[in-house]
Write a protein that binds this DNA or RNA. Structure first.
Lengths: 273, 273
DNA sequence: TGGTTGCGGTACGGAACCGGACAGAGCCCT
DNA sequence: AGGGCTCTGTCCGGTTCCGTACCGCAACCA
């Protein structure tokens, strides 16, 4: 009797109606009941595999996704060869925000970066109709856009000012915030492409983080071992955007990203129970 | 009988009423007459000197600025020491967008980066009231926010992928787009702080650009000499955000940033005549 | 006119990181 | 068990860029 019953196939939208407590997307859960009701009739749960595109740079945005499980990497490309990560989006946000900003075409590639992802999808026309009806709905979604901009700003300054090791610590934390357990499924090669560094530089940086006992590295997997130490290593590259998220979208609604101290995501776990 | 009559002191808001053709801010000019009328009664023209803050990180946003002359540098700080540029805003946009995104506090320092700046200022409460009244007004402003996000994304990938020389070419173009003549007033020291590189690296990069005859360098000033060559040197770090601006806010209203080819800003000049 | 200050040019050693390459180690498939 | 593949660990020289320092020059001011 959990949401899993909707999981695999795409059901006829009209026959299913999501309840707000059925979704694991924090942004949707933070909405008022009325605002959620504007979106709910048009939501469809869809599965994603690693590498699946959620949106493609230059294409028209015909639907938006509210991730429930997994991580969406937002990538910008230079002339089509390498693609670099400008940010990450998980269950705390949504993909397709340019539509909210009056741009019907996606400026970025957005790609599922976890082996098993799930998202609630809504068609663009229904989305636009809903946000035009409700000021508060629009505001909640725009607040997430604001937080994402802050995350991008941090990406800029950390890439300008800090070593690969510190930036790695930051990205691992960004991933860790958005997965259930402590495992991050990603190869050094994928990390290197997203961070814009050499593959073996990733290897070296991970070794140093491992020596510090902050993580454990396996083949195609990184396990967070000491989150507090990672945060110390990431220093001021991490935490600002997350605090803004809590301030703007979290506090008064009992939601949060993974809490500052190490541990399971209590807020989500209890509110799901 | 030009707008200059309003220039120096701050006049009593109620006694002056801007006409749309009186402003040099491209965003305001692109609005419909009705949308402009919502803002106009509350606009005040204010002068800025180099270094003047338009907004301070963490502070409440009590007013917004639509630049007419000069350039606003958007800076993010790490723990208070160095500040790094994440983007530039001139007459094509406005400062204070977080308010539009449901955030009443500025995430960034915004500082005037030209010796003589001017902007139309509006109090936050009047701004909010106006954008809540008009969907089209809100959309135009949000479109600018969208373009600014794209500019930030480009800042990320260029800082990850490209040499100082190329990134310098990009920033010079970003400045050049936003000033009337071909002179950019900035010391190597200021450039180095904003780009997050060593001061003498700026000197070296400028020398190389000068050898290519793309610019001329003077004391505290850089003069654009061959814009086309600068664009070739900047490669794909420049042009994407600008094209999006034209697509979303320019084409159908006869506005544009400095055109792709070398020359004076014809569109603005003629529409002002 | 001469001092003061800030800006620009230059130099040097060292650190970080790159590009490329290669070998071993883990994993899957047959 | 063995073959093939991907991922990881490691090494090389070379380059970019940093940190620092020093000096000359321009602008400003008394």
């Amino acid at each position: 009797m959990t949401w899993k019953m909707f999981g695999t196939a795409e059901p006829d939208v009209l026959t299913e109606q999501f309840r707000q407590c059925d979704t694991k997307n924090l942004l949707l859960r933070s909405l008022s009941a009325q605002d959620f009701a504007l979106l709910a009739p048009h939501l469809t749960r869809v599965p994603f595999s690693i590498g699946d595109p959620l949106s493609h740079a230059g294409d028209a945005i015909d639907s938006l996704c509210f991730p429930e499980e997994g991580i969406a990497g937002v990538l910008d490309a230079l002339d089509g060869d390498h693609r670099y990560a400008v940010g990450l989006i998980g269950a705390e946000g949504f993909v397709g925000w340019p539509l909210l900003l009056g741009n019907s075409r996606s400026p970025y590639d957005v790609v599922m970066r976890a082996e098993r992802g799930e998202a609630l999808r809504i068609a663009a026309e229904h989305f636009v109709a809903a946000v035009e009806q409700s000021v508060t709905l629009r505001l909640s979604l725009l607040r997430f856009v604001n937080v994402f901009m802050i995350q991008m700003g941090r990406t800029i300054v950390s890439s300008l000012a800090h070593s690969i090791e510190r930036r790695m610590a930051r990205w691992i934390l960004l991933y860790h915030d958005r997965v259930r357990d402590d495992d991050i499924c990603m190869t050094h090669e994928e990390f290197s492409l997203m961070l814009g560094v050499r593959r073996s530089s990733v290897t070296d940086a991970l070794h140093r983080l491992e020596e510090e006992r902050a993580i454990r590295a396996g083949r195609g997997r990184i396990t967070v071992r000491d989150r507090a130490k990672l945060m110390r290593l990431a220093a001021d590259t991490y935490g600002h955007a997350e605090a803004e998220y809590r301030r703007l979208l979290g506090d008064d609604r009992g939601l949060s990203l993974r809490p500052a101290s190490h541990g399971q995501d209590v807020a989500v776990a209890t509110s799901l129970g």
